[in-house]
Simulated scan of single mutants.
Amino acid sequence: MHPKQHLAPWGRALIVISLLSSLLCLGISAGLMLSRVRGLSWPALLPLAVLAICALFTVRGYVVTADALLVRRLLWNTRLPWRGSAALQSVQAEPDAMRGSIRLWGNGGMYSFTGLFRSKALGSYRAFVTDRHRTVVLRFANRTVVVSPASPQDFVRDVQQVLGLPAAS
């Protein structure tokens, strides 16, 4: 089977949070630079560093391969193997799966919702999300992962096909 590409479109919340936080960081940086008559100071670079780091962790899409899910980032892929001691047990499209979640560690909306989250419905989970309304929950033997492909149903179908899982009815 050839790898299947899935885009990770940005939802409205991510667009708004990313825009506002970017403008805030740029404004703080500009204000600090303008307040320093004798040149650039390191505090002015801090907000720009935050923007750059968050941009690096942006989720650009997902690739379903025979042996793993690849989460496409700006400069690298995060690899989540399907088999082994942490084998995938189920995959299901669950719209708004992140509802009621709290962020334990990670990014809460500056170019992506990524990191460790917790909710009553899912317990602790790792998110690689760009649209909180278009979510798919992957339950592995030792963890839960939430992603947000453009077409959750197509993504689920592709994962089921590559692993030989029965389609949910």
Rank of each mutant, 00 (worst) to 15 (best):
R118I: 08
R99N: 11
R79N: 12
V37E: 11
W42I: 06
S41H: 12
L116G: 00
A168V: 13
A93E: 07
W82F: 08
V71F: 05
S124E: 10
R157A: 14
F128M: 14
R118V: 13
G109A: 03
L163F: 08
C25D: 02
L40T: 07
Y62P: 05
H2L: 14
S124I: 07
Q89T: 14
T130P: 02
S35N: 09
A55T: 15
N107S: 04
S124H: 07
S29P: 03
L88S: 06
A87V: 11
T130C: 14
V50M: 06
C25F: 08
D154Y: 01
F128A: 13
L19K: 06
V37K: 12
N142A: 14
V136W: 06
L7E: 10
N107A: 05
T114S: 13
L75V: 15
V64G: 01
S35Y: 01
M110S: 02
R36C: 11
L23F: 12
P43G: 04
Q153A: 15
L32K: 03
R118A: 09
R60S: 07
H133G: 08
P149H: 11
P95K: 12
W76E: 10
G106I: 07
R157L: 12
R157W: 06
V71C: 05
A168K: 09
L104N: 08
Q89R: 15
G11P: 07
N77W: 07
I17W: 00
V64P: 03
R118Y: 05
Q161Y: 08
V147W: 05
L40V: 07
R103C: 00
S85E: 15
L74M: 14
P95E: 08
S148T: 04
G39F: 09
A8V: 06
G164F: 10
V63P: 01
G109D: 01
V156I: 10
A8Y: 03
S22Y: 04
S101Q: 05
V63S: 09
R12L: 13
A121T: 00
N77C: 10
V71R: 06
R83N: 07
L20A: 15
S101H: 04
D154Q: 12
R99I: 11
L104V: 14
L56G: 11
M1Q: 12
W105S: 12
L24N: 03
L51I: 02
A150H: 04
G164T: 12
V64E: 03
S35I: 01
L122I: 03
S85N: 10
P95L: 15
S35A: 14
A44G: 09
T114G: 09
I53S: 00
F155S: 01
L80N: 10
P166M: 14
S85L: 11
V159H: 06
I15G: 03
M98T: 10
L45Y: 03
V71I: 15
A150T: 01
Q89G: 14
F140I: 04
W82M: 06
L24C: 13
S169C: 03
P9G: 03
M33S: 06
G31F: 12
M110E: 02
D158S: 14
G106H: 02
A141M: 13
T114A: 09
R12V: 11
S151M: 04
R36P: 00
S90N: 15
R103V: 02
F57D: 07
R99P: 00
S85W: 10
S124M: 06
L69C: 08
P95T: 11
R12F: 13
I28P: 05
R139S: 15
S119A: 01
G27F: 11
P152E: 07
N107F: 02
